[in-house]
Design a protein around this nucleic acid. Sequence first.
DNA 1: GCCAACGTTGGC
DNA 2: GCCAACGTTGGC
Length: 159
Amino acid sequence: MNYWLMKSEPDVFGIDDLKRVGVEPWDGVRNYQARNMMRDQMQVGDLAFFYHSNTKVPGVVGIMEIVRAGYPDDCAWDPEHKYYDPKSSPDNPRWYRVDVAYKETFPQVVPLETLKSMPQLADMALVRRGNRLSIMPVTADEWEIIQQMAKMETDHDAC
DNA sequence: GCCAACGTTGGC
DNA sequence: GCCAACGTTGGC
């Protein structure tokens, strides 16, 4: 089983939206590295952190589960769609997506700022300067650390 | 195959 | 809203 981190702008689609709909195709990814991970590596049962980007406090806000492995993103074939890409076709799909299911929302955001301050997380693409990858792998250790921080934030709040 | 121009991401 | 960093495109 693999762990992942997936970014989305809460103004467009946030974790509250995912909670409401339950399951959602993660479409519109137009980056080859991210596509390769969805197409080749993501498997049903994998878990992913939901990350809010481009917002007041960017950070990890919850957990979701991959419930359908990579399959062609047919948004790319619809000329009316905002994710339309004329270079993708049913015969030769250029872009892929996965389906994700809501699992949980953390009581508090684990802010990017906090993640950056953790030496154990220094290798994550997320905290590296100028990184723009919207989907990235997370190691089991990193997964554990971030999950514990989500709990710690709660404990701290209770004091 | 180089690289300048352009568009996008995303923190701040 | 600004802008640095990065990926992609297209002329040559």
